[in-house]
Amino acid sequence: MDLKDYKGVWTFAEQHDGELLGVSIELLGEGRKLADALGVELSAVLIGSGMDELAKTLVEHGADNVYVADDPILAQYQNDSYSKVIKEAIDKYKPEIVLVGATHEGRELAPSVAAMLETGLTADCTALAINDDGNLVQTRPAFGGNLMAEILTAKHRPQMATVRPGVMDKAKKNADNKGNIVKLDADVKPEDIRTKIVEQVREVAGKISLTDADVIVAGGLGLGSADGFKLLQELADEFTNGTIAASRACVDAGWIDHSYQVGQTGVTVKPQIYFACGISGMIQHVSGMKGSKYIVAINKNPEADIFDIADYGIVGDLYEVVPAIIEEVKKAKAAAAEE
């Protein structure tokens, strides 16, 4: 393998039913920095059916090239079809870096492609950089966030990495951006797809996704019961883009669904405000929320680890403190409305 044959940074633009995921724009934001550091082009790979508008959106967010495989047979993600398209595109255009969002889909697709290409893949990166040799330095947490590891794929190409949603900054939109839209001659036949989707159940609309929320009110074991989330929801509802979340302990106790879990084995979030209510601050939880702009910790135990990373700490019973905060937020909003 001649490493010099491989040039350019690629990002996988994951879309569901014609809507780009937030992480697809985050990958372009990060990919732009890497491409500029290397002095190469940034390209997005888009797979689906009826993708014209999304291809333009990707150009507006900084893609120099968008490689599009647009075909009704590709309307839904299927491991066989999507990995075949990406593998063949990589064989043809030889990018040096390929970034994929660490979503359910991305964490299945990326290793499938890596195995087909016999190249290295680093999972769930939280930071990426280019070193003096022009290699990608991939930083990821290991052992539940107790350890950070820097990983290189120095002798293989492409260097593949999945990136946790919500970790990288989104690319800014600029309608004046120019880019090429390149059609991939994706040759996928029905017999290439061995699995069949029988049914899809998407969760009810209206739920604010954790990675997109501006304010998160999270509960831990200190809530004492599932009912406690009702109080947290009241506080979350005071904010236009607020939602509740939970530590793993609450999910394990059966108080709330796994989709609300923040942390190493849940979702990584970085809202403007993160209220940690009755959360002790285990490293596995902290690794998923420490990127929050302001962390407010409410805990009965003044020694709780969560106070070590909090911007504002309140020692007290959350069932007294949270209602008092709700009241003050109401007052502050009323005062702001009068101005």
Binding site: G120, A149, I151, A154, H156, I295, Y312
Partner: peptide, 21 residues
């Protein structure tokens, strides 16, 4: 034979102290 190699490990740096109300 492994394409990925760990070149450095370190403990994550703690965040600066916040304010207790």
């Amino acid at each position: 034979a492994s394409p990925t190699q760990v070149v450095r490990t370190y403990s994550p740096a703690p965040k600066g102290a916040g304010e207790m109300l």
